[in-house]
Amino acid sequence: MRSPATFGVMIARGDLAVECSYQRLAEVQEEILWICEAAHVPVIWATQVLENLAKNGIPSRAEISDAALGNQAECVMLNKGEHILQAVETLNGILCRMQSHQNKKSSMMRKLKLAQFFHLHS
């Protein structure tokens, strides 16, 4: 039996901004993330993630926030640069810290205690 083809979606935000305009970029990339999660399709977060850090050794504040949003994807793509090891270490730290706040598009919710409720009312 032949296995189904595997695929993913790359959110290449430079190209996406050309297609939908920069005013709608954040909204459209958010919608793509939601749709892909609902369809169980992996997402690659791409285009200039930590680019200043990788090339110049100093990230911008916007790059740090942008990298944190990569937590909603299965993969984050970094472009090469002289400081790529520092960029990888920084990205790893950001994503590890973000995991405790949110897992993709799902809020971290407490355990439900329905069994206890039904036991008291039977």
Score class of each variant (00 low, 15 high):
residue 2 R to S: 13
residue 4 P to I: 08
residue 5 A to L: 15
residue 5 A to M: 14
residue 5 A to C: 10
residue 6 T to F: 08
residue 7 F to K: 13
residue 8 G to E: 09
residue 8 G to R: 11
residue 8 G to Q: 09
residue 8 G to F: 13
residue 10 M to P: 03
residue 11 I to L: 07
residue 11 I to E: 03
residue 14 G to M: 04
residue 15 D to G: 03
residue 18 V to K: 13
residue 19 E to Y: 05
residue 20 C to G: 02
residue 20 C to S: 04
residue 20 C to W: 04
residue 21 S to P: 03
residue 23 Q to K: 14
residue 24 R to M: 06
residue 25 L to W: 10
residue 26 A to W: 04
residue 27 E to S: 14
residue 28 V to A: 07
residue 29 Q to Y: 13
residue 32 I to T: 05
residue 32 I to K: 05
residue 34 W to K: 15
residue 36 C to Y: 10
residue 36 C to D: 08
residue 37 E to T: 03
residue 37 E to P: 00
residue 38 A to H: 05
residue 40 H to K: 13
residue 41 V to A: 14
residue 43 V to Q: 02
residue 43 V to H: 00
residue 43 V to I: 01
residue 44 I to T: 06
residue 44 I to S: 04
residue 44 I to E: 01
residue 45 W to N: 01
residue 45 W to L: 02
residue 46 A to P: 00
residue 48 Q to Y: 10
residue 50 L to D: 00
residue 50 L to S: 03
residue 50 L to V: 02
residue 51 E to F: 07
residue 52 N to H: 12
residue 52 N to Y: 08
residue 52 N to Q: 10
residue 52 N to L: 05
residue 52 N to W: 08
residue 54 A to Q: 05
residue 54 A to Y: 05
residue 55 K to S: 01
residue 55 K to H: 03
residue 56 N to A: 06
residue 56 N to T: 01
residue 57 G to L: 02
residue 59 P to Q: 10
residue 60 S to E: 06
residue 61 R to D: 05
residue 62 A to G: 11
residue 62 A to D: 09
residue 65 S to P: 01
residue 65 S to V: 00
residue 66 D to A: 06
residue 69 L to Q: 13
residue 69 L to N: 12
residue 70 G to H: 09
residue 70 G to P: 07
residue 70 G to E: 08
residue 71 N to A: 15
residue 71 N to Q: 14
residue 72 Q to P: 04
residue 73 A to K: 09
residue 74 E to A: 11
residue 75 C to I: 12
residue 76 V to S: 02
residue 77 M to P: 07
residue 78 L to R: 10
residue 78 L to Q: 11
residue 80 K to M: 08
residue 80 K to V: 01
residue 81 G to T: 03
residue 81 G to A: 07
residue 83 H to D: 06
residue 85 L to V: 09
residue 85 L to H: 09
residue 87 A to T: 06
residue 87 A to N: 05
residue 88 V to N: 02
residue 88 V to K: 02
residue 88 V to H: 01
residue 89 E to R: 14
residue 89 E to P: 04
residue 90 T to C: 14
residue 90 T to L: 12
residue 91 L to M: 05
residue 91 L to G: 01
residue 93 G to E: 10
residue 95 L to N: 04
residue 96 C to P: 00
residue 96 C to F: 08
residue 96 C to T: 15
residue 97 R to P: 01
residue 99 Q to F: 00
residue 99 Q to E: 10
residue 100 S to I: 06
residue 101 H to I: 12
residue 101 H to M: 14
residue 102 Q to T: 12
residue 102 Q to G: 07
residue 104 K to I: 00
residue 105 K to R: 14
residue 105 K to T: 09
residue 105 K to L: 11
residue 105 K to C: 09
residue 106 S to V: 12
residue 106 S to T: 13
residue 109 M to A: 06
residue 109 M to N: 05
residue 110 R to N: 10
residue 111 K to S: 11
residue 111 K to Q: 13
residue 112 L to H: 15
residue 112 L to S: 15
residue 112 L to C: 14
residue 113 K to I: 10
residue 114 L to K: 06
residue 114 L to G: 02
residue 119 H to F: 11
residue 119 H to Y: 12
residue 120 L to S: 07
residue 121 H to W: 09
residue 122 S to C: 04
residue 122 S to A: 03
